[in-house]
Design a protein around this nucleic acid. Structure first.
Length: 220
DNA sequence: CGTTCGATGCACT
DNA sequence: GTGCATCGAACGT
């Protein structure tokens, strides 16, 4: 089998330098990896959302260039991390870029490596979440992987923070409205693996497409 | 099962 | 001063 010798391959910048919805779906099944002195933490991406351009009212680029959203205007393949609600860090992969500000929010991972480390980071005095919940939700996955503003603007095409192809089978995906936003909710730019227990939202199987009328096989 | 609501810090107007 | 690309506990049905 040719695949048996396949080594993890870091996605090149050209992967991100494409239509954002293509990247949004393409990232499903790829692996987000953070290598730190504490150890390696990695998980397969199972849920993403696209934020595209100044005309998208939910995109941070909507007000035009500001100090915070500057990475969106830079080259693709870079991490855009920001701090929200006074306690959560959210990580995006910049796409297109170069004057066309857009990014893919990474919303959930299936934990693959460094589960103990993730559990320690998530517990923080409390109980350790079960495995499926370690990286469920954009705020939870950054905590589990140790991603904060220190990782803002890092290239995703090289360690310590990278997105890689580990040769996992490409899962089927569905599309639906983005969640957690108050504007731009009409755009079906959320992409996820239907029924996957690590997808955010009320329990894994409430995310089956037949429960979400707007869900489709394509973003429209 | 469902919905509401407080925590908490910072970018932006 | 306002409003968050959230989370989880605390409630109501």
């Amino acid at each position: 089998m040719a695949g048996s010798s396949r080594r993890p391959r870091v996605l090149p910048r050209t992967f991100y330098d494409r239509d954002t919805l293509t990247v949004t779906a393409g990232l499903i099944g790829k692996v987000l990896v953070h290598r730190t002195p504490q150890g390696v933490a990695a998980g397969a991406i199972v849920e993403t959302e696209a934020y595209i351009g100044e005309s998208d009212p939910a995109c941070h680029a909507a007000p035009g260039p500001t100090r915070r959203n500057e990475p969106l205007y830079g080259p693709p393949g870079v991490a855009y991390v920001y701090f929200n609600y006074g306690m959560h860090h959210l990580v995006n992969a910049v796409t297109e870029g170069r004057g066309h500000p857009a990014a893919v929010l990474i919303r959930a991972l299936e934990p693959l490596e460094g589960l103990d480390l993730m559990g320690r980071r998530r517990a923080a005095g409390g109980a350790v979440p079960r495995t499926a919940a370690l990286c469920r939700g954009p705020g939870n996955l950054t905590k589990a992987l140790g991603i904060s503003l220190s990782q803002n603007r890092l290239r995703l095409t090289a360690p310590p923070l990278s997105i890689e192809d580990w040769g996992l089978p490409a899962p089927g995906v569905v599309w639906g409205p983005r969640v957690g936003i108050r504007v731009g909710t009409d755009r079906p730019w959320r992409c996820w693996v239907p029924g996957h227990p690590c997808v955010s939202g009320r329990r894994g199987y409430t995310n089956l497409s037949h429960h979400t009328n707007e869900a489709r096989l394509g973003p429209g």
